[in-house]
């Protein structure tokens, strides 16, 4: 059964003058990682809010069309139930610290306390995410005194620890260095391998190419394309929506423009390496070894 289905969904915020979402129809299948891309203010976060029921349960406004989550109409869901079954990592790392816990370890455990998880299991689960995210040095620190990047990791860990089957993650690496970003993506991949369904908003297109199964492209409140990452990331729709291609894809296009196209268009570095090295072998004299 599909996890989420949207049919002709539109939404205008109570204080907004134009719709933030416009005629969106979309199906989210379980067990996949969906990447959402688009310019700032193209409706990515609003889409996430609808899928998680924050709209219309929390943000008010005019919602049209039909939203079904796990086959049930969004309006019939109990908001508290939704917040338990769908995890949500928000964009702003500065507002996600609860402010009521004085160590990072307890901060990460807060969600588990609210779910009524046993103490032993709680300690195990928090310890596991602490290890996975490399937060060992932080567990005794006061979460209210962390840097932006540290807060972002703690906020992410706090939601991951709750182990929902379906998780929405909105720009989890905006404050992180390349190494930490890869670590976060590595964890997202592991979550997917464990059968979780994930919606991920992210600007780092090269990482998207590496990890996402399907990509949703948004522009001015509409979904302009949805499909397998391989198709979407090489499509015209992507650049028309103002989203850059992965670097290696751009390289392939540039090669094609220069009259030396590759056999197919890569989206990841590994693919590009294979394609280009195949080319080098075809024309061994053209390249001098370095």
């Amino acid at each position: 059964m599909e996890l989420v289905s949207l049919r002709n969904v539109g939404f205008t915020y109570a204080y907004g003058d134009k719709p933030a979402l416009n005629d969106v129809s979309l199906t989210i299948e379980p067990g996949l990682l969906y990447g959402v891309v688009g310019l700032n203010a193209s409706g990515k976060s609003t889409l996430c809010s609808v899928v998680r029921g924050i709209i219309p349960h929390f943000h008010h406004g005019e919602l049209t069309g039909e939203v079904k989550i796990k086959g049930r109409d969004l309006l019939e869901w109990d908001p508290a139930e939704l917040s338990k079954s769908i995890g949500y990592v928000f964009q702003n790392p500065f507002t996600q610290i609860s402010g009521v816990k004085d160590t990072v370890f307890e901060e990460i455990a807060l969600g588990l306390e609210n779910l009524g998880v046993d103490r032993e299991e709680m300690i195990d689960r928090v310890t596991t995410v602490v290890r996975e995210l490399g937060l060992e040095a932080l567990i005794r620190k006061n979460p209210n005194e962390l840097s932006g990047g540290q807060r972002q990791k703690v906020a992410f860990a706090s939601i991951i620890a709750m182990d929902a089957d379906f998780i929405i993650i909105d720009e989890p690496t905006s404050q992180l260095d390349p190494d930490a970003s890869e670590a976060v993506f590595g964890i997202i991949r592991k979550l997917k391998e464990r059968g979780k369904s994930i919606i991920l908003v992210e600007h780092k297109i090269d990482l998207m190419a590496e990890y996402a199964d399907r990509i949703i492209v948004m522009k001015a409140g509409r979904v302009v394309m949805e499909g397998p990452a391989r198709e979407v990331l090489v499509s015209d729709e992507l650049s028309q929506a103002g989203v850059p291609y992965p670097e290696v894809t751009e390289l392939a296009f540039a090669l094609a423009n220069a009259g030396k196209p590759l056999r197919s268009v890569p989206i990841t570095r590994a693919e590009a390496r294979e394609l280009v090295s195949a080319r080098i072998k075809e024309a061994p004299h053209a390249h001098s070894a370095l």
Partner: peptide
């Protein structure tokens, strides 16, 4: 903040436990 707290199941009606 309220939304972030809700995401941590703060409004869950099940019995809370304590670390």
């Amino acid at each position: 903040r309220a939304l972030a707290l809700d995401a941590r199941a703060f409004n869950s009606r099940s019995r809370h436990s304590y670390l």
